Simulated scan of single mutants.
Amino acid sequence: MSIPETYQRIVLAARPRGAVTAENFRLETLPVPQLADGQVLIRNHYLSLDPYMRGRMSAAKSYATSQQLDDTMIGGTVGQVIASRNEFYKVGEYVNGMLGWSEMGVSDGVLLRKLDTTRIPLSAFLSVVGMPGMAAWYGFNHIMEAASGETVVISAASGAVGSVVGQLARLRGCRVVGIAGGAEKCAYVVEELGFDACVDYKAGNLEADLAAATPDGVDAIFENVGGACLDASLARTNAFARIALCGLIAGYNGADMPIKNSRLLLINRLTVRGFIITEHMEYWQQGLQELAVLVANRQIKFRESVADGLAAAPEAFMGLLQGRNFGKQLVKLI
């Protein structure tokens, strides 16, 4: 397998002040490194873009260390081994890792996962059979704990995480209500993914439309957005409802996210639990196996937005934060 002499990567050039801009990134060309014993060289085929990256770009204290300036932007990747000095990884094998916004990466193999692409497309290991799918699986099974017949609400319902939560809930026999931005996304959520209803928050009638879609109230919430979406969902909660707090994308650029219905946390004795899926690695083997079977058997559908080429990553990432993506946002690198 031929190995190029150089490769490109994108680094964090400056921390954002408010909204992310193209000036926060820099594209660099570097020589391909020589491998030491135990290392492998991977040609990345796809890069995952995810909302959590916005938090890492900030220097503010958070659950994880901030992205360092002038370092390769963090990100999940899938690709192929093109050179190996590690006996466990052979040239030609496909792997999943965290090699960042880069055409190539070197790894000691410790955090790599071998991939079987015979029944599952390579890109799916960055979405439904990867970190987003695991966030959905864990939040649904271990926090929401929704039973058949209960009503669940999912914000960012057409996205990589929300779409999986909704399909897992549908398979369990729940009434599934999504919140998404735009008529096209709502139609997809209902007609393709099988949700019972979807509320378009851009239509301007979020509270009234959500009330109409949840006549029996809400028993569990999977929250990806925060702000107005969470507030409207809180207003519909039944006693002892459970809330899996996965993301707060409405506030990722520093906007306030006031909650008017906080009194319902007490009145309805709600359980609210935030979680970071990488802190629950003990569940990954089980969750990924279950998700892989569901995808292979076409019981779970997924959709992708794909930007072409590493240079397109910054614009695609900014679009993701503004909700312009449809499904999982990827960058195709080869």
Rank of each mutant, 00 (worst) to 15 (best):
R15P: 04
R15I: 05
R15N: 09
G18I: 01
G18E: 03
A19S: 03
A19N: 03
V20Y: 04
T21M: 00
T21K: 00
T21I: 00
A22S: 03
E23G: 01
N24G: 01
F25S: 06
E28C: 12
T29H: 10
P31N: 14
V32Q: 12
Q34E: 15
L35N: 14
G38W: 04
L41N: 15
L41H: 13
I42F: 10
I42M: 13
R43F: 01
R43Y: 00
R43N: 02
S48D: 00
L49K: 03
D50E: 13
D50A: 08
D50Y: 06
P51Q: 13
M53D: 11
M53A: 11
G55H: 03
R56P: 05
A60Q: 13
Y63K: 07
Y63A: 08
Y63Q: 08
T65S: 10
S66H: 09
S66T: 12
Q67I: 08
Q68C: 01
Q68M: 03
L69M: 05
D70C: 03
D70P: 02
D71K: 11
D71A: 11
D71W: 08
D71H: 09
M73L: 10
M73F: 04
I74A: 10
I74V: 09
I74Y: 06
I74T: 11
G75R: 09
G76S: 10
T77L: 02
V78S: 04
Q80H: 02
V81A: 05
I82W: 05
A83M: 10
A83V: 09
A83K: 13
S84H: 08
S84D: 08
S84W: 09
R85S: 07
R85K: 14
N86Q: 09
Y89D: 12
V91H: 04
E93K: 06
Y94T: 12
V95P: 04
G97E: 12
G97L: 13
M98F: 13
M98L: 14
M98P: 05
L99M: 10
G100A: 09
W101R: 06
W101Q: 06
